[in-house]
Simulated assay, not measured.
Amino acid sequence: MSKVLVIVIHPDMETSVVNKKWAAALRQYPDRYRVHDLYAAYPSGEIDIKREQALLEEHETIIFQFPFYWFNCPPLLKKWLDEVLTHGWAYGSKSGYKMKNKKVALAISVGIDEQEYTTGGKYKYTLNELTAPFEITFQYVQADYRPLFAFYGLEHRATTSRIEKSVEMYLAFMDKYCGTAAENARSIAGDR
């Protein structure tokens, strides 16, 4: 399996309960995952566009890992999307589409319980519906958008055992959805 690029976007990683654990777990496998912390790389918020594009070109699988709050992503990720996925590089010309066929997925920590993200729940929409702009963005640049990973209920139920369970679930998600086609086929066959 080629190395997976995990772009971590958390504005305060030091106080993070889950994202810090997820990133630490991935760093235990440097042969499989390259963890790129955007807020650590760009504390001033000024993004090195060429560096980010080169990083994306080096990897076939990219995961965007972030906490979900105010029904969206952290502001640096929105800025990153606006500045890095440029015309002529990510889309819109013969030399563009550098993201074409790259596997892309979201890994999201969610404070609220999953049942609140349903048609009959408090927030009236599912997480898939609320993250549809990401799916459309990555489809637009012809990436292979994969199912998202979400771990819910961290606001009031962030126990040590639940956090450890989230790490196990996250690593299982990475194995299942981010491997090569052959690895994915073996994983899916193992599910039957």
Rank of each mutant, 00 (worst) to 15 (best):
M1L: 10
M1W: 14
K3E: 14
V8T: 11
V8G: 07
P11I: 09
E14S: 08
T15A: 13
T15M: 11
S16D: 04
V17G: 02
N19K: 00
N19I: 01
K20M: 06
K21R: 13
A23R: 02
A23Y: 03
R27W: 06
Q28I: 09
Y33V: 08
D37G: 08
D37Y: 07
A40F: 15
Y42N: 04
P43G: 09
G45D: 08
I47M: 06
I47V: 01
K50W: 11
L56Y: 06
E57F: 09
H59Q: 09
E60I: 12
T61E: 04
Q65H: 05
F68Q: 00
F68N: 00
Y69R: 06
W70M: 04
L76I: 06
E83W: 10
T86V: 12
G88F: 04
A90Y: 08
Y91K: 11
S95P: 07
S95C: 12
Y97I: 10
K100G: 02
K102V: 04
K103F: 00
A105R: 01
G111C: 01
D113H: 00
E116N: 02
Y117G: 01
G120T: 06
G120N: 12
Y125G: 11
T126I: 08
L127P: 02
N128H: 10
E129A: 13
E129W: 14
L130D: 09
P133C: 13
F134V: 07
F134P: 02
Y140T: 10
R146C: 05
F149H: 00
F149R: 04
F151N: 01
G153L: 03
G153W: 03
L154T: 05
H156I: 00
H156S: 05
R157L: 09
S161H: 11
S161N: 10
R162L: 11
R162P: 01
E164S: 07
S166V: 03
S166Q: 11
S166K: 02
V167H: 04
V167F: 00
Y170D: 11
Y170I: 06
M174G: 03
C178D: 03
G179K: 07
T180S: 12
T180F: 10
A181S: 15
R186D: 14
R186E: 15
R186G: 13
S187N: 14
I188K: 07
A189Y: 09
D191Y: 12
